[in-house]
């Protein structure tokens, strides 16, 4: 069934375009418009030399990679085991994984702050004290990774679950087993390659989440990219908007790169 673009469809498309593109265009115009000189890209050139730009962006990317690795290592075996061994537990896990959507980040971070304050007081004489210090290391705050893993759970669970739904995990595992593969081999060689799309989706969503996260990082006193943008905005309005536009483009480019890398492998494995 060929779908023609009727006037009605054009209208909807146009409205959506206006809704998304007008603010973006306005932001861009604001950053390059100088009342005295006309067009001026000073705001953009200033970003790169600005204090903390590189370090905060790098920190955000490091956090994103660490979060993706941890959340996938946690969820892929869990969801696969759930499907193979205990399908009746699925609703329970689904509800647990959806909780972070219900709990507002502000409540979540308040809880974390309380624990971080309470812990060292009671554990000051134990080796755990050092653990509390280490997770809050400002050069790489592990506590943020832990928080982001929790916040990414709903998205990762859903992405993996739909991926697993598309393949017959049990039969694939049994086929691999009857071909002489042990259970771990069967999972790595037969199931995982067929989850590529789902893994990619999960990584996607986690990356976008971590790059844009503000509340938790700000309240815990760290400075990843989103917090840095906010801080810069306080002093230089034009530059902060320029950074927002840039961060939008950077996120977009990263997602495209991820899609490109995964997509190419995917077409190699399932041409047609």
């Amino acid at each position: 069934m060929a779908r023609r673009l009727t006037p009605w469809r054009w209208a909807v498309l146009g409205l959506a375009a206006v809704y998304f593109l007008v603010p973006l265009a306005a932001s861009f115009v604001f950053t390059v418009d100088d009342p005295r000189h006309g067009v001026d890209f000073g705001a953009y050139t200033g970003i790169v030399s600005a204090d903390g730009f590189g370090s905060s962006l790098l920190l955000s990317l490091e956090l994103a990679v660490a979060t993706i690795v941890v959340v996938l290592l946690l969820m892929v075996p869990a969801v696969t085991a759930l499907r193979l061994g205990a399908p009746r537990l699925r609703p329970v896990v689904e509800v647990i994984c959806s909780l972070p959507l219900v709990v507002p980040p502000i409540a979540f971070v308040a809880g974390i702050v309380t624990v971080l304050k309470w812990g060292p007081q009671y554990l000051s004489r134990t080796p755990l004290f050092q653990t509390f210090v280490a997770v809050q290391n400002p050069t790489f705050p592990v506590v943020l990774v832990l928080a982001y893993v929790v916040m990414a759970l709903p998205f990762v669970y859903r992405a993996l679950d739909s991926g697993l739904r598309a393949i017959d995990v049990r039969t694939l595992v049994e086929a691999a087993r009857s071909c002489g593969a042990s259970l771990p081999q069967a999972l790595v060689r037969a199931v995982l390659p067929n989850l590529r799309g789902a893994l990619l989706n999960a990584s996607f969503l986690t990356l976008a989440l971590v790059l844009g996260e503000f509340t938790v990082a700000q309240l815990l006193g760290f400075q990843p990219f989103a917090v840095w943008i906010y801080n810069v905005g306080g002093s230089q309005a034009q530059m902060s908007v320029a950074v927002s536009v840039l961060s939008l483009l950077v996120t977009w480019a990263l997602l495209l790169a991820l899609a490109g890398a995964g997509g190419r492998d995917r077409t190699a494995s399932s041409r047609g």
Partner: peptide, 25 residues
């Protein structure tokens, strides 16, 4: 060796690699 009721070939492998899967193991 087992042949299943539902199609059980590994979707990410071509015919030769599917057959060779056990030998790879």
């Amino acid at each position: 060796g087992m042949v299943f009721q539902s199609y059980s070939l590994f979707p990410h492998l071509n015919a030769v690699d599917n057959v060779a899967f056990g030998l790879r193991m």
